[in-house]
Amino acid sequence: MHGAVTLTVIACGFVTVRPLGLGGRGLAVGVLLVLCSVALLARHLPEARFAPRAVLVGLALGIVASAALIGVSSTGACYLFAFFLVGHIGYRFPPQWSLPLAASSSLLCGAVLYFDVGPGHPNLPWVLGLTTGVPVVAGMLSRSKQRALEAVIGAAESSERAARAEARTAALAERGRIARDVHDVLAHSLAGINMQLELADALLDTGDLDKVREANQKAHSMVKESLKQAQWTVHALREDALPLVETLTAMLESSGHRDALTVTGTVRPLSARGTQNLLRIAQEALTNAGRHAPGGTVAVELAFAGASTTLTVRNGPAARAVTVGLGSGMGLIGMRERVALLDGTLTAGPVAEGPDAGGWQVEAVIPDE
């Protein structure tokens, strides 16, 4: 659009401005027409490729050439060059640069007509020369609209980038949650099954087939429990809500710790996220207890307070030999990550006194959502 307007002005100048020839005054008019046309075409050069001061100097020279053309030519729309050049200056440069140059254009063109510099247009009023600086206002308004549009586009692009970054963060968080769930299921199930199979293998040397069968049955029971754990994981990934107390009770019974749960306070439903994470923390704590303190006592307490829920898992010292080398070392890290997602706190450490001295305790406190 702007290119078509520029070409139209240039064409109008070459068609109407006279005299135009190869010598004398006609040559001067032709040279000035070329200079004005080049200055007008320079409006479309990319801003980033040229220094602003260099462009400003070029446009200023174009205005001088336009004023000279007004004085030298005798007919035609030569004043259009000054109008369009000043308008572009208002669009391209800030007011501290464009306004003085527009005023200079008005004074220069007005003076050329007022003092009859050169042959000039005898019928053009000198006031027309003064008006050549007026288009700077239109250029400034267009500049303001363009900058506002660029700001809106920039804000939209920033919002889009922020939305993409948020989506990537959410995807990474979801991947981390899935990794924790998979780890919990595998660690809890495979560690327990491996423990029972190792026990059965050790008992074969003693010839005590009854205890071998018992260990084998426990391994089968843990396989069934693994299937339940897989179902819990699917529920967690789908954000299905599970009953906290009932699920925790079933989890303890399946791991051989019947009647190990104590519930205090008024039982209330928690959010699906809070329930799933507490269950996983309990599961990991029970896995660690079975791994590091086999045969030890286990006590679990679920306390509902006014604005928070506390899960405590405590185990006594090991009653059998501990098998070294099991576990990934990620259990406690995963528990801390889960509690952090709920803006809660987690403490874990050895029990120093009481009947469970020498054991281990994990306590997770999460606020109500």
Results as ranks from 00 to 15, higher is better:
D116E: 15
R268W: 12
S226Q: 04
S106H: 08
V136A: 15
V365W: 07
A65C: 12
V263T: 08
T309G: 07
T266N: 15
A219R: 02
E160M: 14
L59C: 07
T266F: 07
I193A: 05
R320I: 04
R268S: 15
F50G: 04
V31A: 11
S74D: 09
A165T: 11
G331E: 06
R147C: 04
L197C: 13
A28M: 08
A321R: 13
G71E: 03
G295Y: 05
R258I: 14
G21W: 05
E363S: 14
V234F: 05
L332P: 00
A215H: 00
L7D: 10
L107M: 15
R164N: 07
Q231I: 08
K211I: 04
L197W: 10
S308M: 11
I193V: 09
V263S: 06
V5Q: 13
S106C: 11
T264W: 07
G327Q: 06
K218M: 08
R53Q: 12
L248M: 09
R258Q: 15
G358Q: 00
D201M: 07
E198M: 06
D240R: 11
R258M: 11
L99Y: 14
W360G: 00
L56D: 02
V127C: 03
A173G: 06
H88W: 14
G3T: 14
M335S: 02
A48R: 11
D210N: 10
L204D: 07
A155V: 05
G110V: 01
A173F: 07
H220S: 06
W97M: 14
A28T: 05
V117F: 14
F93G: 00
A68G: 09
V38A: 09
A77H: 08
P355Y: 02
D181H: 12
A200M: 13
E363R: 15
A65I: 01
R43V: 10
A200W: 04
G13S: 12
S37Y: 01
C78T: 13
D184Q: 12
A307E: 14
G62S: 06
S74Y: 04
W97P: 01
E301L: 11
R314D: 13
G21L: 09
G24S: 09
N277G: 09
D368K: 08
Q231G: 12
L242A: 07
I178G: 03
H183Q: 08
G359Q: 00
W97H: 15
H88I: 02
R43E: 11
N315E: 02
